[in-house]
Amino acid sequence: MGNVTRGTTNPNRLRRMDRWIVATHGAELRRVADPVAVDLGYGAAPWTAVELLHRLRGAAPRTRVVGVEIEPARVTAALPYEREGLRFRHGGFEIPVSGRPVLVRAANVLRQYDESEVAGVWQRLCARLAPADPATGSRGGLLVEGTCDEIGRRHVWVALGPEGPRTVTFATRLASLDRPSDLAERLPKALIHRNVPGEPVHAFLRDFDRAWAAAAPYASYGARQRWIRAVHALSTDWPVTDRPVRWRQGEVTVRWEALAPRA
C-alpha cells in the first residue's frame, strides 16, 4: 500500500535521525524481548537499513531490522545484503511484519505525497506500532517521519507514538548553516506548505532566526556555541523538550502541538 518513490539514497544519509533515535528510543528497544525496527521505503539501495541495524544494535543488541520497499525490484536487489538480524520485504504502509514494531523509520517517503494524505498515513502507521504499557512505563513504539537533503546535512522529522504526533526535531550540520530558517526546505510534508505568515512553524523559524542573529557574538567561539545560545533563548517562548547535550549535536526538539498546522 503506497506509491513508488524516486528511491534516491546515499550511505550515511540518515545518520542524524539514527543518532537521535538511539539517544531517545534506545531504552524502549532494550525493554522489549524481541525489538523489531522497520526501515520503510529504504530506496533503490539498502544502505540505510544496513546502517540502521548497526546503529540500533549499539544501543540494543537484540534489535532486528526489516527493510520494507514497495518496488519489488528493489527488494530483490537488497536480498544479498541480508544477514542475521536484517531482512527485506516487499510492502508499504501496511508494514508486512509479524507483531508490532517498536520503531518505524520513514525518511523521505511522504515528501512525494499530497499534504492531505499525510494524516491518514500517520494514522495507519501509528496503528501498527507496539502499544504503550503503563505497567512497565513503556510509551510504546515510535514512528519517525521526516525529510533530509541528499547527504544528510539538514534534516527535520516528526516523532509519533501510538497516540499520534509528539515532537518535531530540527537537525543540521552547523558548519553548513547560514541561519536556522535554511531548514525550512527540509520540513516534512505535514509542515512544508505551512511555512507562511500566520502558521506556527513560520513563527517558530522567524523567532529562531532572530535568536540566531542575537547570538552572533558567540560565533567567535564556533557555530556550536552560537546554536546553543540561540536555542536557549528560543526555549523561553517555545516548548523545547531536549537539553544542551542534544543542542550540541546541532539539534533542537519542540513539542508538536506548538508547530502543528492551524485548522
Rank of each mutant, 00 (worst) to 15 (best):
L103H: 03
V118T: 09
G92C: 01
G146I: 03
T167A: 08
T236Y: 01
A130S: 13
H54G: 10
P197W: 13
H232G: 15
T48H: 06
R31I: 04
R262E: 10
G7A: 04
R89W: 03
V196F: 08
V4Y: 04
E82Q: 08
I95W: 04
G92D: 09
A23M: 09
E51P: 04
V32D: 07
A260K: 03
L174K: 14
A263E: 13
A184N: 05
V65W: 00
W122I: 07
S138I: 13
R62K: 05
V66Y: 02
R210Q: 08
W122M: 10
R226S: 03
A214R: 09
T9I: 08
T253E: 15
L177G: 04
G198E: 11
V68H: 00
G99E: 10
R19W: 05
E28K: 08
E94N: 12
R124E: 14
V201P: 01
H25D: 11
W247C: 08
T76Q: 15
V50S: 06
G198A: 07
L40E: 00
G85N: 09
R15N: 09
A37F: 04
E71D: 11
H54W: 15
D39F: 00
P197V: 12
H25Q: 15
A60M: 01
T136R: 13
A33K: 07
V50K: 09
R179L: 01
H90L: 15
G152T: 05
Q112P: 01
Y113W: 07
A37S: 03
D34M: 10
L86T: 04
P131F: 11
V201C: 02
E51N: 05
R15W: 07
C148M: 03
V158P: 00
R128S: 12
P131K: 13
D242Q: 14
Q225A: 11
P200H: 04
E145R: 02
L79Y: 06
V66I: 05
M1L: 12
T24K: 14
D237T: 09
P101A: 00
P165D: 04
T236R: 11
H232L: 14
A184P: 04
R154W: 10
P188R: 09
A211W: 02
E69C: 01
E251C: 14
V4G: 02
M17R: 05
R243F: 13
R6Q: 12
D149P: 02
E69D: 13
V75C: 10
R31M: 02
P244A: 05
P96Q: 12
G140S: 14
